[in-house]
Amino acid sequence: AEIMKKTDFDKVASEYTKIGTISTTGEMSPLDAREDLIKKADEKGADVVVLTSGQTENKIHGTADIYKKK
């Protein structure tokens, strides 16, 4: 799966169907969080990951919607 910015995804959204939401939390780098989200998306058969939230304090927390091409 590839990560797309919401603004970029909005241009092609009609080509995809939302298949779920994924999240990651833990003591990790932003890059590790990104890789974890991609891994989870791949496991669910998603083609595209669109980040919906991200937070960093002591731990990273990120959520994303996942989509499959129609």
Rank of each mutant, 00 (worst) to 15 (best):
D42G: 11
I22F: 02
Y67I: 03
K70C: 09
E27S: 13
N58W: 07
I66Q: 00
P30D: 14
F9N: 01
G45P: 00
E43I: 07
K70Y: 05
E57W: 06
E15M: 11
M4C: 07
G20H: 02
L51S: 02
P30A: 13
K59R: 10
D10Q: 11
G45L: 04
K69V: 04
E57V: 09
G62V: 15
E27T: 12
V49Y: 01
K68E: 06
G45D: 06
Y16G: 01
R34T: 09
G20P: 00
T56R: 08
K5G: 09
T17H: 10
P30Y: 14
I60N: 10
D47W: 04
I38M: 08
M28P: 05
D36H: 10
T21G: 03
P30W: 15
V49N: 02
A1K: 02
T63W: 07
G62Y: 15
V50T: 01
H61N: 11
A46E: 00
G45F: 06
D42R: 13
L31H: 13
K44Q: 13
K39F: 06
K39S: 07
Y67E: 04
D8M: 05
I66A: 02
A64G: 04
G20D: 04
G54S: 12
T56A: 10
I38A: 04
S29D: 13
K5A: 13
Y16Q: 01
A46V: 02
E35V: 11
K40L: 09
Y67K: 03
V49M: 08
K68G: 03
K40A: 05
K40P: 00
D47P: 00
L51C: 13
G45R: 05
T24G: 04
G62C: 15
T7V: 14
P30V: 11
T25C: 15
A41D: 01
I60H: 11
D47I: 04
D47C: 10
D47V: 05
K44P: 00
I60W: 14
A33D: 04
A46I: 02
K18R: 09
I60C: 13
K44I: 12
F9Y: 02
L31P: 09
T21P: 01
S29A: 09
D36P: 03
M28Q: 08
E35F: 09
Y16A: 01
T7K: 12
L51P: 05
S14H: 15
V48T: 02
D42A: 13
G54L: 15
G45N: 07
N58L: 10
D42H: 14
A64M: 06
T52Y: 06
A33C: 11
L37V: 03
T24F: 14
G62R: 15
A33R: 09
D10L: 10
D47N: 07
T52F: 06
L37P: 00
T56D: 14
T21S: 11
D36Y: 11
M28W: 05
G62S: 13
I38Q: 06
E35H: 13
E43P: 00
K68N: 04
E57Y: 06
K40I: 11
Q55E: 14
G45E: 05
V50M: 02
H61G: 13
E57S: 10
K5C: 15
K11F: 05
I60A: 13
I60R: 08
Y67Q: 03
A41G: 04
K40M: 09
T24I: 15
E57R: 08
E27W: 13
R34F: 12
M28V: 07
A13H: 07
I22T: 01
K59E: 15
K69T: 03
L31T: 10
E2L: 14
S23H: 12
I3S: 02
G26C: 14
I66N: 01
G54Q: 11
K5T: 15
M28H: 07
S29E: 08
K6N: 06
I38F: 03
A46N: 00
I19R: 00
E43M: 10
P30R: 09
E15Q: 13
D8N: 03
E43K: 09
K11V: 07
Y16M: 02
D36R: 06
A13G: 05
K59G: 13
T21Q: 09
K5P: 09
A13W: 06
K39M: 06
K5H: 11
I22E: 02
K69A: 05
K6W: 11
E27F: 15
K18D: 02
D47Q: 06
D10H: 05
E35C: 12
S53L: 14
V48Y: 02
A33W: 14
Q55F: 15
K18Q: 07
K70F: 05
E2F: 09
A41R: 00
K68V: 12
M4R: 02
E57M: 12
T21C: 11
T21K: 06
D47M: 04
D10M: 12
T24C: 14
G54I: 14
I38R: 09
A41P: 01
E15D: 11
Y67N: 04
V12N: 03
K18I: 06
Q55V: 12
D47T: 07
S23G: 05
A33T: 07
L37F: 05
V48D: 00
T25N: 14
D10C: 13
K68F: 05
A64E: 03
I3Q: 01
L37C: 03
M28T: 05
T21R: 06
S29I: 06
V48P: 01
Y16F: 07
I19L: 08
D10G: 05
S53K: 08
N58D: 14
L37A: 01
K40C: 06
K39Q: 09
K18F: 14
V49Q: 00
A1S: 05
K40H: 05
D8A: 06
T25I: 10
V49P: 00
V48F: 01
T7G: 10
V49H: 02
E27A: 13
T17D: 11
Y16W: 02
G45V: 02
F9G: 00
E15V: 04
T21I: 07
T25D: 14
A41K: 01
T24D: 03
V49I: 15
E43Y: 08
V12H: 04
I66H: 01
S53M: 13
S29F: 06
A41M: 02
T7I: 11
